[in-house]
Write a protein that binds this DNA or RNA. Structure first.
Lengths: 229, 229
DNA sequence: TGTGATTGTCATCGACGCGTAACATTGATG
DNA sequence: CATCAATGTTACGCGTCGATGACAATCACA
């Protein structure tokens, strides 16, 4: 699940540097030197996120951002603006244009990567409020509560942690050992079969809302949390 | 109704960026580069909320938070911690110092604004008159009185402060330590178990109005004040 | 200074959740 | 279809945590 990032930046050296950093971070880098090239690239292959230089020859970055927000195809794509110091204060209609974040030059690639990840995380349902929602289930982290629809689900500590782990790591199989490491913590030793029992208990607490089939058994491997039955 | 936000952060560029985003969002931004400047700024003009960098030259953010919690003037001001590479340690310590929320760097300005609004909203059924209302309970801050419907509720000082904190911070779990910090103040040392007793007393005073189930136990974690049973 | 209210601490009791074993069921493999 | 392995299900004992009531110290106010 490599993320595709489109870099729109006229200076080749900067573009290459960013592309290199992205690839090292396990992302796919697409490149464009101006607004026209960017739009073509997007049509050809829709990226997961766009890095947009503020200053571009011809159509400015801000203008391009506005345009992308109007197109159906590109409306939902998160945009991170790259601005030089000083440019921030005057022309920062960027936020109004629907830019998700902006990074001030010069930046470290490390910081840039971190920002990208933060924005991607947020565009995937994590709005930073500590709320996680998936398939009719909602977990309110700060409140330490679980809701099915708007009904509160009574749940014990361990089942809560287990469910929390599952809902933040859905659609993937985890072995009993992995679940023990993540949910119980590596320092304690308990039988692997104990996981089975807690899976059972979790299913039972979800049963009244017919959500117990989100917890799925993968025979010979472990368990998976998934939306689809 | 512009909210005043104090930014305590030593890095000028970050501070400026945040300040700009805040103004854009219709808030007034005050700035301070270290703990000393922060305290002076607070005395001069009390902010509605404080953004506090974890790492500060001289007095650390954590230490400053503790100090602010002890001062009468700043006890009630919500604090949002800005932490780099937020590890578990940071979170725990920060929350124990009576911090209201924390945001991990790097964050997008949009995320930060969202958090600020959330915290302000939470600590603000308060419309300025000092009246707070929630789920059939009403607190008259200036008068130091509590009403259930229109009946006055007889309540002692500590239970009053506990209830006041709860009603201004509903739908969220607080550990005993956190409650001690927020309600008792960081300067006194009392046993954690004492919280249990006052929870009990608070429940007993609310019982005649069947509101005692708003005070909820979260086993292994702490207590929560909530509308829904 | 006296009296009632308030507060913090402690000991005790009970409830709850947890881990484990024992047994039942299902699935795979030949 | 026989057999073994993997998982589902249930019951039980133990330990931990929270609830509760009692008590002594302190505070506020007459």
């Amino acid at each position: 699940m490599h993320k595709r990032i489109l870099i729109v930046e006229d200076e080749t050296s900067i573009r290459e540097m960013i592309a290199f950093a992205l690839r090292k971070a396990g992302m796919d880098a697409m490149q464009a030197a101006d607004a026209r090239a960017a739009q073509l690239a997007i049509v050809e292959q829709v990226p997961d996120l766009i890095l947009l230089d503020w200053m571009l020859p011809g159509t400015s970055g801000l203008e391009l951002a506005r345009r992308l927000r109007k197109e159906e195809l590109s409306r939902e794509i998160p945009i991170i603006m790259l601005t030089a110091r000083g440019e921030e204060m005057d022309r920062v209609n960027g936020l109004e244009a629907g830019v998700d974040d902006y990074v001030v030059k010069p930046f470290s690639t490390r910081e840039l990567i971190a920002r990208i990840k933060a924005v991607l995380r947020r565009s995937q349902g994590d709005d930073g409020s500590g709320m996680v929602e998936l398939g009719g289930l909602r977990i309110d982290g700060p409140a330490h509560r679980v809701f099915a629809g708007d009904e509160a689900v009574p749940i014990g500590p361990t089942e809560y942690r287990l469910l929390y782990f599952f809902i933040t790591h859905p659609e993937r199989v985890y072995s009993r050992t992995q679940l023990l490491d993540h949910v119980w913590g590596g320092s304690v030793y308990v039988e692997e079969r104990t996981v089975d029992v807690h899976i059972r208990r979790l299913r039972k607490t979800l049963e009244p809302w017919k959500l117990d089939d989100m917890v799925q058994t993968v025979r010979g491997t472990g368990y998976r949390f998934s939306i689809s039955a």
